[in-house]
Design a protein around this nucleic acid. Structure first.
Lengths: 333, 333
DNA sequence: CTGAAAGCGCTTACAG
DNA sequence: CTGAAAGCGCTTACAG
């Protein structure tokens, strides 16, 4: 491998001068710089980033924890994160936790060895049990897409999930629906709360019995939950799925139950992932500003890297938006 | 940050001894080792991986290029790769190329600085134009899920795509279908070829006009392609989608065209991704051994890392399998 | 504007 | 079984 020293010898300077040419931190006489550049090209030199990292203390890499990469939500988030990172010359070290705390713990231990400059944790899950370990982290940590209680050691960039649920509920209520059910994932309590609030304004309630939990966060899980909901209360005219994937299953369940959407049944999702944009009928859903969330989170992270030590304890809430498509309509009767 | 030197002082030894305790390469007297371990615990020492990398020349990180992470195919592949990597103590640096050669080139340039031990490139695409750069790579490169001509500089672990297409075709042909169409992505020529071969045995042909290219690799793209196919030849009784996502769109298109699947129209997909396992009707598809492919590719990579220099030029073909579900049936009439 | 020196935190032979 | 030395390839003050 060709080193900075090799380039220096070839150009008839010392390696410090080569370093100066490369970094641009110190002015170098044009003629010298040109000789150095020529030597670099001739030798095909590329700097050794590992050596640079050791000297500077920065790896130009950030770690990203996500529960999974299957399913559009996190996949889209990752690509956004990558884009922002690239603008800043950072690389991405990925770890999917699979909702497995032990797995996350092992990876965290690996990262703790200063091989990343910072860590972004997306999605609340079992990880919360392992935050003690995070407290020892030698690098800044930022949390995003966090729905449950946000630990106040770390900056959080997330969505106003309560409002997200509220927007879904208000839309449904304004369409005249009175008997509704919720298809949910266990960790989506805040969205459900917001959804409920939209109804209390009218003196209505969404009882706990109207909330049906999906066995798994997949269309199949949503199918099951929706089938259960419709069987339990056939008079239900609207469904709120706290997750788009669940809504996809709900659309199938409605079809099997012989109820057409939106004439006999309205369905609202949450996330606005790519897959629902092509569902039939196209899904009305609450859109999450993923791009904005990724950008804000990474910027928090980069800020924290620069002025290390002064970890700010901020909570940033991004606003969701209702996207009305074809799966919701006025309540029959 | 606490360093090996700190641990050594605390334990009353030199840092080499600490290094020996940690690596286990050299025997250390139990009493000494115990003192060292105690010091490590008390100080909360974790080794600096960057320094270790500089000394050893290995970063214990591999790079992975995928076209995208949205959509199950690559997402599932990534999680498999991660699993295998973890068994070997490696980290994953991810780069989604978005089929953008320039983007891939930039990332490759970044990696070339020896910050990864090896690179796995999954999915053939514009990258092929940038292979010249790859030739300069200082680390082993392995290709996987490669359908087009496989450049013979690098080991390739891929699927027998010709056979995959053939399996889909044979199934369709055996069900008695004679008028068929193909919904394809541009880079899936090999699958289409295999599909065709299944028909030539019976003296049938699948003309180029029966191949409909999807404007994009999404359900929406599949929808469009299927709608075009059915409009062009209403007598078609079976559809082969070279991509499961396209098949999903085809299912919708059939529904809109008033053709029930599989009674009026059979649909076969390719990939066996998670989303099609919950489609209704459940999709008959060609299953790709993703887990096996990930495992073999990573093992090739690790082997190449160990005995560097002797890059083997092997082509490993994994066999696909037909999975019959509900979307295919005998040709009507 | 350029060079000599020290250091980042580890590992790897090599003596003792 | 333990320690002294050199080196991995860079950067960062500091002189000149």
């Amino acid at each position: 491998m060709v080193t900075m020293q090799d380039v220096a010898e070839r150009a008839g300077v010392t390696k410090q001068t080569v370093s100066n040419v490369l970094s641009g931190r110190v002015a170098v006489r044009p003629a010298t710089a040109a000789r150095v550049r020529a030597a670099i090209d001739e030798l095909g030199y590329t700097p050794n980033l590992v050596a640079r990292s050791l000297a500077t203390g920065s790896t130009k890499t950030i770690g990203l924890f996500v529960p999974t990469v299957v399913g559009s939500f996190y996949a889209e988030l990752i690509e956004e994160v990558e884009d922002v990172l690239e603008e800043h010359g950072y690389h991405l070290l990925l770890c999917t936790t699979r909702l497995d705390g032990e797995r996350a713990r092992r990876h965290l231990a690996g990262l703790t060895s200063r091989s990343v400059d910072a860590l972004l944790i997306a999605g609340d899950n079992d990880l919360i049990d392992h935050l003690p370990l995070l407290a020892d982290a030698r690098f800044p940590v930022v949390l995003c897409a966090w729905e449950t209680e946000t630990p106040d050691r770390f900056p959080v960039v997330t969505i106003d999930y309560e409002r997200a649920g509220y927007l879904a509920g208000r839309h449904i209520r304004e369409l005249g629906h009175r008997k509704v059910a919720v298809l949910a994932s266990p960790s989506h309590a805040v969205r459900i709360e917001g959804f409920r609030r939209a109804f209390t304004a009218d003196g209505l309630t969404v009882p706990e019995s109207a909330v049906h939990y999906a066995p798994e966060p997949t269309p199949a899980g949503g199918f099951e939950a929706a089938a259960a909901a419709l069987a339990a209360s056939p008079e239900v005219t609207a469904l709120f799925a706290t997750h788009d994937v669940l809504a996809l299953g709900a659309l199938e369940a409605a079809r099997e139950a012989g109820r057409s959407v939106p004439q006999d049944l309205s369905v609202v999702g949450h996330d606005d992932t790519l897959e629902v944009q092509v569902a039939r009928p196209a899904l009305t859903t609450v859109s999450i500003p993923k791009r904005e969330m990724a950008r804000q989170a990474i910027e928090q992270l980069l800020r924290a890297i620069t002025r290390s030590g002064t970890q700010t304890n901020s909570l940033q809430l991004l606003r969701p938006e209702l996207v009305v498509r074809e799966s919701t309509g006025p309540a029959a009767g």
